[in-house]
Computed example of a mutant assay.
Amino acid sequence: MARADFYLITTPRFRTEPLRLVCELARKAFDAGLPTLVLARSQEQAEALDDLLWDMGDEVYIPHQIAGAEEDEDEAEVLIAAPDVDAALRPLVINLRDAAVEGAFDRVLEVVPADESARGPLRERWKQYQARGLELKKHDM
C-alpha cells in the first residue's frame, strides 16, 4: 500500500533552513537504497537543493542532479525536478509543490512549513491522499 508522510517543521534548525530537512530526507532515502524524485517548486529552489546536497559534510555523498540537465539522470539516486521539467516518478517522491502528487509511487513525503498560514493546502492534500486510500503518517521535525 502506498504511503504519504507529512513532515511538520517545528525545530528552529529546520525553521531557518527548511531545505535542510529535504536534504536529510533525501539522505535517509539514499541510505535505504530508494531512488528519489524531489519535486521542487521553482528552478531556483531546485538549484538551492542541488547546492545543499553537495554541502552535507565531508563524510556524506548523495549522487544527485537536476532533471533535464544531463542524459545520465537514471544514475542519480536523487533527481531534483523543477516544475517545467517532466520527470518520471520514482518509488519515493519528496513533494515541495502545492498540488498532490498524481500517479504511481510507493511513498510521498510532504514537507509542512512552520508557518501556520501555509498549512491550508497541506490539509487539502492530506484529504486527497486519504481519499485515494494511502496510508498517512505525521512526523514533527
Rank of each mutant, 00 (worst) to 15 (best):
M1T: 08
M1S: 12
R3E: 04
R3H: 06
A4C: 07
D5E: 11
F6E: 01
F6P: 00
F6L: 09
I9Y: 00
T10C: 00
T10D: 02
P12N: 07
P12G: 07
R13I: 07
R13K: 15
F14N: 05
F14Y: 13
R15F: 05
T16N: 12
E17G: 11
E17A: 13
P18D: 03
P18E: 06
L19M: 02
L19N: 05
R20L: 15
L21K: 06
V22T: 14
V22D: 05
E24S: 10
R27E: 12
K28M: 13
A29V: 09
D31A: 11
A32F: 10
L34N: 13
P35V: 06
T36M: 04
V38Q: 00
Q43I: 00
E44D: 15
E44L: 11
E44W: 00
Q45D: 04
Q45F: 00
E47D: 12
E47T: 10
A48F: 03
A48I: 06
L49R: 00
D50L: 11
D50S: 15
L52A: 13
L53K: 09
G57D: 04
I62L: 11
Q65S: 13
Q65P: 04
I66H: 03
I66K: 04
I66C: 02
I66M: 09
A67V: 15
A69Y: 07
A69L: 13
E71N: 12
D72P: 06
D74M: 14
A76V: 05
A76W: 01
A76K: 13
E77F: 13
E77D: 14
E77Q: 15
L79V: 14
L79D: 03
L79Y: 06
P83S: 04
P83K: 08
V85F: 05
D86W: 06
A87V: 05
A88F: 02
A88P: 10
R90C: 04
P91H: 06
V93H: 03
I94E: 03
L96Q: 07
R97I: 00
D98Q: 13
D98E: 13
A99Y: 00
A99Q: 13
A100M: 01
E102P: 04
G103N: 08
A104C: 05
F105S: 03
D106Q: 13
D106H: 05
V108K: 04
V111H: 04
V112K: 10
V112N: 10
P113C: 14
P113R: 10
E116N: 11
E116S: 11
A118E: 10
G120Q: 12
G120P: 09
G120S: 11
L122H: 14
R123M: 05
R125T: 05
R125E: 01
W126Y: 15
W126M: 07
K127R: 14
K127D: 09
Q128T: 15
Q128M: 09
Y129T: 03
A131V: 09
L134W: 02
L134V: 07
L136W: 07
K137F: 10
H139T: 12
D140E: 10
M141E: 14
